[in-house]
Design a binder for these strands. Structure first.
Lengths: 188, 188
DNA sequence: TCAATTCGCAACGTGAAGTAGCGAAATGAC
DNA sequence: GTCATTTCGCTACTTCACGTTGCGAATTGA
């Protein structure tokens, strides 16, 4: 009907937001700051995104590189690899901060929670594939609740690394993997 | 040397903060709001606590009733009871919000993280006692890393209930408890 | 009694959220 | 090509919370 919204402006905003998030953390990623650095007017940002939440989510979307699930031939091997990668990512304080911020916003706002879910970084997909392969190999019963198994797998790592903010050394990591594999096998 | 700080004022601030947290959630618990509701001057609040973080932590301290560890005679029974109570508490959205807020603030500020640690609501103490009893009964090896076992136990519940914000039905709960007990027994 | 400190009050500065009005530029419809 | 419509960038504004400062009055230890 009339002048369309500028794609170039949208791209610039997202790129600016992204670089702020990566360089300085999500807390610096305010509408004012994006406007200042990008040269784009605040009003334009509000027209495009309606607020910093949607802007951050748009910036995050696409940064999330889906992990191709490893295939080592055993559930233990696959989970070892998946969680190893997960912990490497979680070593970045900005990412832990980002995760905590998203959890925080999700608790305040169900709409944000739903959007967050769509964009989230998670080893979830890989873990599902690893579990399906383990079922195909008859390594675990085909009747298990895969979603529950996922929490059984990633919960202990998240608890120690995110909630408690403690690193895991190699021994702890292996011990946890072994115990978790035993737990998954014990699932009905 | 001179006039001491008013204990009455301090108590009033803490009580006001507490009631705001319980009634409206931690987000409404700002210095301005506490001042408005309590009739105490903002400056006085800053003199006493230096900011809303310390005020909230002070308000929380004392609300946390330590849970007396259940003693059912088996690790499974103890963990069942402990996690059941934990989930009942986590059913309150204001508490999940509070937890997310604390995690969020902890990521930003190591000092807050340390203070948070001292005040935190957690079934940690009970779980440690349950594990020690299980060791005494030779239900699990005496060599296990108790802290790691704790994450193995509470991680899956936290992952599903806090991170994912999903409730657990009775079947899921029992399944998870069984799998976790198997995992703890598999610890070296 | 007196010096020191607190309390309550009012005002101020900062920073971010979000909104409003305006001129200029761009674009779809005709 | 013309024109109505919408966007864009700008400036300015309101609101809210944080945190600070200065001041008179009240309180208390020495």
């Amino acid at each position: 009907m009339a002048r369309p919204r500028s794609d170039a402006a949208r791209t610039t905003m997202i790129d600016t937001a992204r670089s702020i998030i990566v360089r300085d953390g999500v807390h610096q990623c305010t509408v004012d700051e994006v406007a200042r650095r990008s040269g784009i007017a605040k009003t334009t940002i509000y027209r495009h995104f309606g607020g910093s939440d949607a802007l951050v989510l748009a910036a995050l979307d696409g940064m999330v590189k889906a992990m191709e699930p490893p295939d080592t031939g055993s559930l233990r091997g696959d989970l070892w690899e998946i969680q190893r990668r997960y912990l490497r990512v979680a070593d970045d304080p900005r990412l832990r901060e980002l995760y905590a911020w998203m959890l925080h916003r999700s608790m305040q706002d169900p709409v944000f929670a739903a959007d967050f879910r769509a964009v989230r970084v998670q080893p979830k997909g890989s873990t599902v594939v690893a579990l399906q392969r383990a079922i195909a190999r008859s390594e675990v019963p085909p009747t298990i609740d895969i979603e529950l198994a996922m929490h059984l797998i990633q919960g202990p790592f998240a608890s120690k690394r995110i909630f408690e903010n403690e690193r895991l050394d190699d021994d702890e990591f292996d011990t946890l993997i072994d115990a978790i594999v035993a737990a998954v096998r014990a699932l009905p």
